[in-house]
Design a protein around this nucleic acid. Structure first.
Lengths: 217, 217
DNA sequence: GTCTATATCTCGATAGAC
DNA sequence: GTCTATCGAGATATAGAC
């Protein structure tokens, strides 16, 4: 995170620390003291830079929001075959999470407490932008159905299924590691395995079981 | 929740209220005052029954844990064909969440903060019980593969995918409703739609695309 | 068992020295 | 810009009346 922003070094340290703590405990559960320690400074400096806990949270969340929506969208704009798009979408999505699992943690925490910040933010984003990730994904699925490339599935539910199957791995990582300790022992290997599995099961789930029913015009 | 427990009526009210509040804000973010108001009593009574916030949280979580693991396991013990088992597993899992979305919220919150309570609890549960939901699910998938009923997928990743695709719908419900307002307008209908979609895409994802490669012996 | 009142502590936020 | 010290609100938890 905090890649290309007009932040000083200290602001970045605070920002990253806040992201980490907020994504573990949520806005209410997070402690300013813990964020300060994580950033290697003291509480007073947090307020010097961000005035209040609420402003700090909003700054963190809105930045993460924009980064995330952009990263989700980009692979969907490429011109490729449907399976190739799907593969890149899954790979990209998993890679973002591998590096920054905080993003969807923060997002889910928002949802659990009724989405007070992300709700209005997303509403505005969807109104102002034509090419958003969910819309593009749904359009891609619809085109593929119309072209006879995949079965007639519900595009929106397919979107939820793909996202959910990707994200859940990171959301439930500690529990899943308790069930299968190999996950924690070789996290990177498990993520690569998971990318392959996801494309395999999901594309197979979308594809026709026998031959395509229509010929492409 | 709180179905067949030796709790008084007041204890149940506290219990349900605590589950609700903990599942929205997490253990640290939850306020005893809010739990008391939700239960229609005052703070002092919470401490009378459960001594401390920590004990209340553990009581809530361990009960939810047992209920949940049992409900997950039951459909996997039935004697049926693989697709029928899968369908019942998905339907049952979705129905539990439709009625009690707090369960997986609480579980995910635990994971986000490093699983301090569920980690040891799950470890002990897996050691003491032979027939647990993850184990049974994996065994079912393995048997189906060996019988030539489905493709040779990774059973553990398949478990994660099925669970994740089910749970994410509830975890991200507010966000998904922003994208598609129909979800919130007809929640029950959307859940039934989702059950159908999930079985369709996941079973199709597991099945052979052409004919089974081996004949059953 | 259930309440009010209060003790004690922790948190977010600010004041002020450097 | 960065720190220490501290205020005041709000949190958990307890005491004690009924």
């Amino acid at each position: 995170m905090t890649d290309a922003l007009a932040y000083t070094e200290t602001e970045e340290r605070i920002f990253d620390a806040a992201l980490k703590v907020f994504s573990r405990k949520g806005k209410d559960g997070a402690r300013m003291q813990e964020i300060a320690e994580e950033a290697g400074i003291n509480k007073a400096l947090l307020h010097y830079y961000f005035r209040s806990k609420d402003r700090l949270y909003r700054a963190v969340f809105s930045h993460v929001f924009r980064e995330f929506m952009g990263a989700l969208r980009d692979p969907l704009k490429e011109e490729s075959s449907f399976p190739e798009i799907l593969r890149r979408f899954i790979d990209g999505f998993m890679s973002i999470h591998a590096e920054h699992p905080e993003i969807s943690r923060l997002w889910v925490l928002e949802n659990l407490s009724g989405a007070p910040v992300v709700g209005p933010m997303l509403k505005q984003y969807l109104e102002e932008n034509a090419e958003t990730a969910p819309r593009l994904f749904i359009e891609r699925v619809q085109s593929a159905i119309e072209a006879g490339e995949i079965r007639a599935v519900d595009p929106f539910h397919t979107f939820i299924t793909v996202i959910g199957a990707c994200v859940f791995f990171f959301l439930a990582f500690p529990t899943l590691s308790s069930i299968n300790p190999m996950l924690a022992m070789d996290r990177d290997g498990a993520i690569e395995e998971r990318k392959k599995h996801l494309f395999d099961i999901l594309y197979n789930g979308l594809a026709f079981r026998h031959a395509p029913s229509t010929t492409t015009t």
